[in-house]
């Protein structure tokens, strides 16, 4: 068996184990039939979506990356709450003080998975919503454009997540 098919098999096995773990967490039962159906379904899920997983997903099985993910969650949550308060104030303010527009920013992240997470994080944080990704350019709807300077915008929108996401996904 050569290296690439071995890697594929490892991927399928990981996917199978993850789906089965999820199934068991949701059912919380070791009843024979529950386990049997769980195994069958996880098997089909692994075969069905295994080949469609983005490249480089094996990197995620590295525990060091999980550590960064654990740091990332509260970090992200802090900005998420801040974003919510910011938008909430704008919404209940009598004048609705917004300065919306679509801006273009550049990210240095390269892998698809990292960019997907970056786009999701941007959508859930301070007044920004990812509209489209084109290569390494992100188009972002910003509810309150603060500056006209390109570099400052990049720092403001993507800068705070990039370093951690690079450690997790690249």
């Amino acid at each position: 068996m050569n290296g690439s098919s071995q890697r594929k098999l490892a991927r399928l096995l990981m996917l199978f184990l993850m789906s089965f773990a999820l199934w068991e967490l949701l059912f919380w039962s070791l009843n024979f039939w529950v386990v049997l159906v769980g195994i069958l379904l996880s098997f089909f899920v692994a075969i069905g979506i295994g080949p469609r997983l983005p490249a480089g997903i094996e990197k995620l099985f590295n525990p060091v990356r999980w550590l960064y993910l654990v740091i990332y969650i509260p970090y992200f949550f802090y900005y998420c709450v801040r974003a919510n308060l910011d938008v909430a104030i704008r919404v209940i303010h009598p004048d609705v003080p917004i300065r919306p527009g679509i801006v273009k920013v550049h990210t240095s992240l390269e892998s698809d998975l990292a960019k997907a997470f970056l786009a999701n994080s941007i959508t859930l944080t301070p007044g920004t919503l990812t509209i489209d990704i084109d290569g390494q350019d992100l188009y972002i709807h910003w509810i309150n454009i603060q500056t006209d300077d390109y570099q400052k915008r990049c720092d403001e929108i993507v800068g705070r997540f990039e370093p951690l996401l690079r450690r997790i996904f690249e």
């Binding site: 919510n84 938008v87 919404v91 609705v96 917004i98 919306p100 679509i102 919503l129 509209i131």
Partner: peptide, 16 residues
């Protein structure tokens, strides 16, 4: 209800 267009409304609905 209060924000002006689709994009701003999507902001409010996704975040809050």
């Amino acid at each position: 209800v209060r924000l002006p267009d689709v994009y701003n409304r999507a902001q409010a609905s996704t975040k809050c």
